[in-house]
């Protein structure tokens, strides 16, 4: 499948599960997007636990200007106060509009489950046609434990009362995916989002 065809499919499938998809050209744009969404929803806190040091300071500065509290660690202590969880996705799967996110860090899990909105940046180059294409990469990750991998495809949902679809039963009520086109990257010095991620702590 051609890249643009994958992206088209990804967006189409995302819409079907109420995931909002937006193209961004740099991390700065993604950060500003997250700040705007947080403010629009009346929130004041962003949890972004898995950023590398440079990105963290970049986001911290933007948050400071916007008067948003940025949480980057000990997220458990802030449960109940997190408006937005912001992450850098590992892969995307077009067939099911899935975000693949290494959630081995507890902070990442809490930020993405106990926030009202989850926003993830997904590099365009890391979108695959289907999950089978990721089999060897995922198996490799599973071989280095501990490992907690998540496929996230939309916001938390239930249909347990009279089969009426209801969003946000436990986790976030919204999932926003920002597809990052690194080819047009200008504002951020880091071209590979994977490098922008903080190495998970090993215990």
């Amino acid at each position: 499948m051609e890249k643009h065809e994958q992206i088209r499919l990804f967006k189409e499938r995302a819409e079907a599960v109420q995931t909002s998809v937006t193209d961004v050209t740099g991390l700065q744009q993604a950060f500003l997007y997250a700040i705007e969404v947080t403010k629009n929803q009346g929130g004041s806190t962003i949890a972004a636990p898995a950023l590398g040091p440079e990105e963290r300071s970049q986001l911290a500065e933007l948050c400071r200007q916007a008067e948003i509290t940025l949480l980057t660690e000990n997220i458990r202590d802030h449960i109940g106060k997190i408006q937005t969880g912001l992450t850098l996705g590992d892969w995307g799967v077009a067939e099911t509009a899935t975000l693949v996110l290494d959630s081995t860090s507890e902070d990442v899990r809490i930020a993405t489950m106990l926030s009202e909105t989850h926003i993830a940046v997904l590099p365009r180059s890391r979108i695959k046609s289907d999950a089978m294409e990721l089999e060897s990469e995922l198996s490799e990750l599973m071989r280095s434990a501990p490992r907690y991998l998540a496929f996230i495809s939309g916001a938390s949902r239930t249909a347990d009362i009279e089969r009426v679809l209801t969003i946000g039963v436990h986790g976030p009520k919204e999932l926003h995916l920002l597809i990052l086109d690194e080819g047009q990257e200008q504002s951020s010095p880091v071209h590979d989002v994977q490098k922008a991620k903080r190495k998970p702590r090993r215990r």
């Binding site: 599960v17 907690y148 496929f151």
Partner: peptide
Amino acid sequence: ATGQLISTYVTWITGPTPCTS
């Protein structure tokens, strides 16, 4: 099961993960 292409959360756990509690 439900006519969904995939369920919202599919989780793969290998080994005991970090847990601050």
